[in-house]
Design a protein around this nucleic acid. Structure first.
Lengths: 159, 159
DNA sequence: GTAATTCCTAAACCTAACTTCAGCTCAAGA
DNA sequence: TCTTGAGCTGAAGTTAGGTTTAGGAATTAC
């Protein structure tokens, strides 16, 4: 258990609950920047324990690694981040989060009137509103629903 | 544009805004079950327009295809689903949704007190609570954070 | 009747976020 | 010193949710 000169990847993994491979992956994604010791092994700052924790929590909230990298960029380069630094990041973070929740709630409020009423395929269905569609999480190459419901009137004629 | 004996995949795609390839993929996932005409081409029920719409909306709410398949299983096998059938599904659907929103809000409420205060790596941090961790979306082979923070006291000793 | 669409299948490719593996090297304890 | 465990790299595999492509066959439009 190293006490100065940085901590090892294994210790960081143990302290955060992350897999060693995940930490190496995060480095490759630019989320953390360890240096190397004489033997070529990674050495991390103790403060990176908190950095990893932040990543894990941000992921729980549904942020992607590039987004999280954006949050982390606002941390100071030279010194160990203070409580104030984290609080500042947290504010940015929270506004994204609020927006995400709001969108989800708005979608939910349309649900009862829409699926419940059986209007699913009609153009006046609020769930088809392009604004609401923008709520896409953009995860993977998911089809982004660029629709054109011009001929949208015959949906009710089930045989 | 076929008027009886089912609709083609291209027409279904046009009506829903889905890609033809996506519809074939949904069939492979058991979300829809077309039959074949004499030439081997897929034929769908008109009611499948609504079925596809349901899938798209459920996806916006963050449900996975297996979950959506579960919702759809409650639809009647033989006959065309009625408004009542959709309303019934919608109820089930909504309770899942409420739960998801609640979890997200709970996580948010912990945010200010937790990231803001800089306690991220401490065991008393609410965001580390296993209950809250269960909020994982389980997308892909993401590491499920099986932690064991026995030695969790030295996190504050940044050099 | 023929040309243009549409549809078919199977396999390969894509992104995100990782894990696993093979084949080595480094570090730490007895 | 020797052995074990930890770390290294690069490539390939995994899952979800699809798309793209290749090479034919069926339908539709004129």
């Amino acid at each position: 258990m190293p006490q100065s000169a940085g901590i090892s990847i294994g210790y960081l993994a143990e302290r955060t609950g992350l897999a060693v491979s995940a930490i190496r992956y995060y480095e490759a994604q630019g989320l953390v920047e360890p240096w190397r010791n004489a033997g070529g092994q990674r050495r991390f700052h103790r403060a990176d324990i908190r950095r990893m924790s932040f990543i894990m929590i941000a992921q729980q909230f549904g942020f992607s690694l590039p987004e999280i990298r954006g949050f982390l960029r606002s941390l100071p380069g030279g010194r160990t981040p203070t409580k104030e630094d984290w609080a500042c990041i947290s504010e940015n973070f929270r506004s994204h989060l609020d927006q995400r929740i709001e969108t989800l709630v708005k979608l939910r409020d349309n649900l009862d009137g829409c699926i419940g009423c059986g209007c699913l395929s009609l153009p006046n269905c609020k769930l088809y509103n392009p604004e609401d569609r923008a709520a896409q999480k953009g995860q993977g190459p998911r089809y982004l629903m660029g629709d054109s419901p011009e001929t949208e009137t015959a949906a009710e004629n089930d045989p």
